[in-house]
Structure formats: C-alpha cells, structure tokens
Write a protein that binds this DNA or RNA. Structure first.
Lengths: 122, 122
DNA sequence: TAAACCTTGACACAGTTGTGTCAGGGTTCG
DNA sequence: CGAACCCTGACACAACTGTGTCAAGGTTTA
C-alpha cells in the first residue's frame, strides 16, 4: 500500500505533524483513516500538501483565507451574496446604459449557474 | 450637498465611527474626503455600509474574509491559483473521461476570461 | 514485551482581527 | 471665541490563527 503515516507525510511535505492535523481540522486536506484511526496520506494528499505550501508562501495568504475560498464554492448562497456586495463596489451606473446592464446581468447569472452546476456535480 | 460626516454616517448605519475608520482601512468602504480631510459618506457608501452589516451577520463571516474575496477579484493570478488548488479537491479523475475534462477546462477558462473582462472593464 | 509509532486533548505563546477609548491637534460654525 | 465636531496615533483587550510541546493512552512490529 502506498499511504504514509503522519510523520512520514510530514517529512516529505515539509509540514510538521502538528500542522497536518491542523490543516485537516480546518478542512483543507483530510486524509483517509486506517481501521485503528491512523491518518493515511496517499499520493494525492501529499501533492496537495506540497502545492498548499507554495500557494500560501507565494501569495501571502493564510489557511483561513483558503478555507473561506473553499466555503465560497461549497455555499452558492454565500458566494452570490459576497459577489453582489463586491460587484457594487466596481459598478459605475453612469456609463452603463440599460442594454449593457442587462447583458451584464445575464452573464452574471450564467456564471452563477455554471458555478452551481459544477459544485453540485458530485 | 448630501454627504454625511463620520458621526452622522455612524448613526444611520449602526456602525461606530471607530469601525467606519477600520472598514476604510481594510479597503471595503472608502468615503470621499473634504478639502480639509473630513470623511464624506454619500448615499452609495451608506447603503454599502448597511448591506455590509447584513452580509456579515447573515453569513457568519468577517471583514477579513470579505477583504480576501475582494482581493481575489482584483488579482486574477491569485484567483486562478486558489481556484486550481480547490478544484483539485473536488476532482474525481475516475469518472471524468478525457472529453469531459477538456470541456470542463474550456468552461473554466471561459469563466476566468469573463471575470477578467469584467474587473478590467473600468 | 518493549520501542516507536499513533490518537486526542490541553497549555502556551506570538501575531492578527475587531473594538473601545483617550490624547494632541486642526476645522466649522453659531 | 468657544463648543462641537474632525483627524491621526496609540494603548488596551478579547477572540481567533498558526505553531510548538507535553500528557495519557491505544497500535504496530521487531
């Protein structure tokens, strides 16, 4: 079997065992468990843990930011609400005639449907 | 002129003056300034502040979460990186034949282009 | 069986977020 | 002019994030 225990996974990914447990707790990488409860990290989890390091270091973001981004895609209602609020920030009604506005709305709704379909696919 | 000072804005929105300054600092609602530096809250800012309250209370999120969501749309590179990482989480390569995978990629890229075009519009 | 793992839970600690309050100094307006 | 605003900056404090370490107890394996 090609699954590593938490200490082995820690060594090959650069995280500490403590942080692997924390990352699991915030829901970002959740390894399988053995019959007796041991965490089992497979190749997919190891790769995710490595890219996670790069992602955090390369963009100055935190685990909580990523957890929120994850929540955004699992909760379409939340996503729609935040998107709506943030879109208002960029809006400038003055130079958006009615026709353009409607096209914009249609595109927005299409994007929301796309996102919903994708997250609902499983 | 229909612009309120920070205390007046605080009263009509339910935030404290202190929090209005903090919200400006994190980049979520940035009022205009008078010649002498006073913050001037117009109808648009007041409405944004009220909906901001509802958004935060209604979804158990924080200002920092919203600030990150805002950063996501202003930085397409960051958005693409986080999206890619999170997409891998939902993936299940077993039941995704090559044709579907390519269609998925095309849709993803189209969505990214849409988003980029919209944020770049100004 | 004993070493070397694993589990959860807790204490600890620095840094960030969200908030209040207060000080020192400029602005507006009756 | 003086009261009542506004500004920035700082101290304070609870709650959360990100980490380390240690304790009490179960599992694996030489």
């Amino acid at each position: 079997m090609d699954a590593l225990t938490i200490h082995e996974a820690a060594e090959t990914t650069g995280w500490s065992p403590r942080m692997l447990r924390y990352i699991e707790r915030v829901g970002l990488v959740e390894p399988a468990r053995s019959a007796s409860g041991y965490r089992l990290y497979g190749p997919a989890e190891l790769q995710r843990l490595r890219t996670l390091r790069e992602l955090l270091a390369g963009h100055e973001i935190g685990l909580s930011d990523l957890a929120f981004a994850s929540r955004l895609r699992r909760d379409p209602g939340l996503r729609e609400a935040t998107d709506a609020w943030l879109e208002a920030k960029a809006e400038r009604p003055d130079d958006v005639p009615a026709a353009d506005w409607m096209r914009w709305e249609q595109q927005k709704h299409q994007r929301l449907l796309d996102a919903a379909a994708l997250t609902a696919a499983p």
